[in-house]
C-alpha cells in the first residue's frame, strides 16, 4: 500500500504543485490538503498520514504551533516543514528543534522532495 501524505499550506497553488510532485513519486499518494494548522490537526487525526508537509506561515494556527501539537499527539510523527524563508533559517531551525524531520524550501525541486520521502522511510528500515 502506498504511503499517505498530508499537505498543509494556505496557498492552493503550493498545495497543488506539491501534490503533483508527490503523486508522481512511486509509493506515495497525497490523501488530503489542510489550509491551516487547526485543519491539519483534524486531518492528521482522521486520515492518519505517514508524513505531513507543513507550511510555517499560515492563518488561524501557524505551522510551528501545529507541529508542536502533532508531535505531542504522536511523537513519531514525520513532519517536513515547507519554508519560503529557506536561507534565513530561523524558523526552519525552530521547526527542527520542535521535531520536524526535514525542511524543504521553495521553489520545490521534485528530486529533493523524492529524496526526502525516500530517506524518511529508508531510514526506518536501516
Amino acid at each position: 500500500m502506498n504511503r499517505k501524505v498530508l499537505v498543509v499550506d494556505d496557498s492552493l497553488s503550493v498545495a497543488r504543485q506539491l501534490t503533483k510532485i508527490v503523486d508522481e513519486i512511486e509509493d506515495f499518494d497525497v490523501i488530503g490538503h489542510a489550509k491551516n494548522g487547526a485543519e491539519a490537526i483534524k486531518l492528521f487525526k482522521t486520515l492518519g498520514p505517514d508524513v505531513v508537509f507543513m507550511d510555517i506561515v499560515m492563518p488561524m494556527m501557524d505551522g510551528l504551533q501545529a507541529l508542536r501539537t502533532l508531535v505531542r499527539l504522536d511523537p513519531e510523527a514525520k513532519v517536513v516543514v515547507i519554508s519560503s524563508l529557506g536561507g534565513s533559517g530561523q524558523k526552519a531551525e525552530e521547526a527542527l528543534r520542535l521535531g520536524a524531520m526535514n525542511v524543504v524550501s521553495k521553489p520545490f525541486e521534485p528530486d529533493k522532495v523524492r529524496t526526502i520521502l525516500n530517506r524518511l522511510f529508508g531510514q526506518e528500515q536501516g
Partner: peptide, 21 residues
Amino acid sequence: MGIQFFGEFLIDRWVITRGQL
C-alpha cells in the same frame, strides 16, 4: 531549490544528522 541555509544543506548531503544540527 532556493537559497538554503548551511545546516539544511549538510543534512541533505548526509554529512550530519538532524540531532547533530
